[in-house]
């Protein structure tokens, strides 16, 4: 049974159709990669899933609940967190305040404290810089903060949009290691990436997106060896 199921989804920006009937599913425990070039519609899909955009057609089911028209602020308490493209941390607030906002919908102080401990353990640099304003962090640290902030809601599924964008190769490796360990700790991951090589290396399955349509899908390792994928996305 799929944890997240998107069926025949179409999204328009005004008269321009950005997503042209996309269907995919994410099963519990999987890492699913959505890969594709810039402008293929990857971010739009994530925005539609978490309610920042409403699809004009199709449906989105999360744990058998129809969330197609659920507004964004009600999504996180269902157990779904979204790490947006470009990190979008609250730069005027401290690292600690950012993390606390991640747990905005939770009320049990003890549980929040436990999750905070867990996040600090996973990202020791965030603990070192807890009182620093988020805007003064480096790009890699901001990405860690955005991920930590999402984890603060204790999600069952986490959606990540271009987590490696603009980071140095060493940091990219670090971020992908973290994604893998988040997955191993039991959180399902839906990953949107332009770095197809890295994404396919850690994903279980992947969907390839081209101008608003899924053109290929399947086992990540098989896709990695597919000649057309190699040519178009892996630069080989």
């Amino acid at each position: 049974m799929a944890m997240l199921e998107v069926k025949d989804m179409e999204v328009y920006y005004g008269v321009i159709q950005a997503i042209k009937g996309v269907s995919f599913q994410v099963n519990e425990g999987e890492i699913i990669a959505l890969i594709g070039a810039n402008g293929a519609g990857k971010t739009t899909i994530l925005h539609a899933v978490t309610g920042l955009l409403t699809p004009q057609k199709g449906s989105i089911l999360f744990e058998d609940k129809d969330i197609t028209k659920t507004p964004a602020h009600k999504i996180v308490s269902l157990g779904m967190a979204h790490v947006p493209e470009g990190r979008r941390v609250f730069s005027e607030l401290s690292v600690y305040q950012n993390l606390k906002l991640g747990a905005y919908t939770r009320s049990d102080k003890g549980e929040i404290e436990q999750t905070l401990e867990m996040v600090y353990k996973r990202f020791p640099r965030l603990e070192e810089r807890r009182n620093q304003l988020a805007g003064t962090l480096s790009g890699g640290e901001q990405q860690m903060l955005a991920m930590g902030r999402a984890l603060m809601s204790d999600p069952r599924i986490i959606l990540m949009d271009e987590p490696s964008m603009g980071l140095s190769p060493i940091l990219v490796n670090e971020i992908f290691d973290i994604i893998q360990s988040v997955s191993e700790a039991g959180t399902t991951v839906l990953l949107v990436e332009q770095n197809a090589k890295k994404a396919l290396a850690i994903a279980d399955r992947a969907y390839v997106l081209e101008t608003g349509k899924i053109v290929m899908s399947g086992d990540a390792k098989e896709l990695m060896n597919d000649d057309s994928i190699k040519k178009a996305y892996l630069g080989e």
Partner: peptide, 11 residues
Amino acid sequence: EDQGAAELMGI
């Protein structure tokens, strides 16, 4: 600071 990001926090 950022309405969209705030909504993603459940605000």
